[in-house]
Amino acid sequence: MATASPSSVPLTRPIRSPGAATRIAFGALLLRDLTVLRKNLGMFVGRTIIQPFLLVFVFLFVFPKIGQGIGGGSGLAGESAFAAVLVSGVVGLSIMFQGIQAVALPLANEFGYTKEIEDRVLAPLPVALVAIGKVLAGAIQGLIAAAIVFPIAYAIHAKGVEVQLSVHWPLLITLIPLTSIMTSSLGLVLGTRIQPRNIGMMFGFIVLPITFLGGTYYPWETLAAIKVGGFPWLQALVCINPLIYVTEGFRAALTTTAHMPLYVIYPVLVGFCVLFLWLGVRGFYRRVLS
């Protein structure tokens, strides 16, 4: 044995103050998650760009080429207007997906089959901070995803289609972190509540509706045209979708198109953050403690 002397037997007393131990352990948990990210960087980049790439490729390259115009059917001008709508939608969608893929999927497995989260839960810090560390690591991946996706969404389009962007920096640099934390928190909620065998269902019943009814392909205001008895039901319905505030926010930050008012977007995004964090941490407690 390497340590045979009795003096090496630890003393029965805590070594660090709870505050110091917590700070150190929290940093180490983040370090662990970033190491895993670095080891899987290729996969991370691939899964981050594949969906936005396909969306932009089909809508902004293929469609104009084959004459299947979209954006009101007014030719290249309409397509250019649609390009601006889509680019902001795609950036929002990518951050959303990152939150789910970086937090929900690994957590569902770590809880469900392997219990490998246990060693991190036994690290010397409050359990809630293990969950929050997971959200933070997911949010960092959201930031990176935004940085990767934006150039792709901006650059890929057919000749003649102009992507007219007008960047509002204060909005952009506040929205990206805010939405990254919000979507990672949603990932925590899903990851702590969904059994590994139901992950397919999660994509079908949660992720797809969020994607298609989240304003990726259309501004929220235009939904006002869809009415039953004078009531814009779809416009009202999608207000429960957190993604709509993300895509509208990026529309405000990146384009000059009409968008939902900022005094709605910011408070609602903050509200979803708080709600999802609370539900997620509660779900985390339930899964690791009994």
Partner: peptide
């Protein structure tokens, strides 16, 4: 801070190597 726990099932961190499992555990503990 005061305990070490060996669970009944294999709960090693599958995203990490053998050495990394030890290294990051050490980092968790300061």
């Amino acid at each position: 801070q005061m305990i070490g726990v060996v669970a009944q099932t294999n709960n090693l961190d599958r995203s990490l190597t053998v050495w990394e499992n030890l290294y990051y555990h050490g980092r968790f503990f300061g």
